[in-house]
Design a protein around this nucleic acid. Structure first.
Lengths: 200, 200
DNA sequence: GTTTTAATGGAACTCTGGTCCCGATAAGAA
DNA sequence: TTCTTATCGGGACCAGAGTTCCATTAAAAC
């Protein structure tokens, strides 16, 4: 027996695409304003102006909807810095992360999506893909720095970029400490010190 | 007008204490086995063998129950290492975190509690208190190291301990990367390098 | 022991998230 | 353009989470 194709796959154009766009926008709005716990598909349908049945048929659960939103967000790429200087590049990255996480809408949205990933396996995989993409975008800074001789040859570019974000997310999620420019610079400089010491 | 005292405050002994214990144990079991999204208070009551009404009256929401569980967990203290050597102490700490997060029950429980903190303000405050306690327990390692001259005088003990955990939680939550002994040692050594460089 | 009343818990009830059915609409093929 | 059928959406329906009411139990004070 052949598995039935998921709804929306056979005729992805026109109406189907419009519905997906409206639903994802509504999901982003609701997640940012009310958090993952408030993500019920009936309200999404209402906000998006589409039928409740459609949302339940296409996405089924709030976790699957969050996963689709994450995959959609992973498409939009952010350009990285190219200062010709790792320290400045990493600080730019750290400040970008802080700006994102402290932005009222974006910060709440990211928290909600992480909550989704902790409640749903599919959302978790989508979140990991999302961060893989974001990290990859900035890994070039580290690769270039190794090229220029600013960092030891063995440095793992993705690990260094991850090390910049890690303390910022730890402050956001675990300790609740303030995220400001000083925290960003500490995160960048800490990752740099570890990379220079050959740890990463 | 005086605010009504919360139920359970006036007669905290005997039955009330037994109920709380049974409910918190049940909550921990359900969170570890099914995650925060499955935490409905009616099931908790069933598993704990207490009346559904009692759970709704005493805790009200799954977020408040998670918060109470976190405050309860913060009571049980874990002894820190005292190797007389920061590097070894920090590695011990990192390995302890990895062991906890990769333990089938504990790992799921922590994920569920972080999810709770992202869905409920009260649970968030409780989680931040919990990590403040855990970090404080290990901060002594860093203070002792400063005393011994192994780290610069300005090093912020709590920040160094937080820097050890941060990449491990980032791997757990954001990237989904494997948590093993090598990752633990990288986390400890990275924090150490940053501390030695005077960044933390 | 006796008294007071805080706290528990069973049962009936409400309300709403999620499902199911089926006719209407429009994407894609010919 | 016409035809086929994937996809949409309104409305009835259902299950179970959360509320309310009140009789029962037992903690704490005396």
């Amino acid at each position: 027996m052949t598995a039935a194709p998921p709804p929306g796959a056979a005729r992805p154009g026109g109406r189907t695409a419009r519905v997906r766009e409206a639903v994802l926008r509504a999901a982003g709005d609701v997640l940012a304003e009310q958090g993952f716990e408030a993500l019920d598909l009936a309200e999404i349908a209402r906000v998006a102006g589409v039928g409740k049945t459609t949302v339940y048929r296409r996405w089924g659960t709030s976790g699957a909807l969050a996963a689709d939103l994450l995959d959609d967000m992973a498409q939009g790429s952010l350009a990285r810095s190219r200062n010709g200087n790792v320290e400045q590049d990493l600080r730019d990255n750290a400040r970008l992360v802080v700006r994102t996480l402290t932005d009222p809408r974006q910060g709440r949205l990211f928290k909600a999506l992480i909550a989704a990933s902790l409640c749903d396996e599919e959302a978790a995989r989508a979140l990991h893909r999302f961060y893989a993409v974001r990290i990859e975008e900035w890994a070039g800074c580290v690769a270039d720095a190794v090229e220029r001789g600013e960092l030891p040859a063995g440095a793992d570019a993705r690990r260094v970029i991850a090390a910049v974000s890690a303390p910022l997310y730890y402050a956001l999620l675990n300790t609740g400490e303030a995220l400001d420019t000083a925290a960003a610079d500490r995160a960048a400089d800490g990752a740099l010190a570890a990379a220079r010491a050959g740890v990463l």
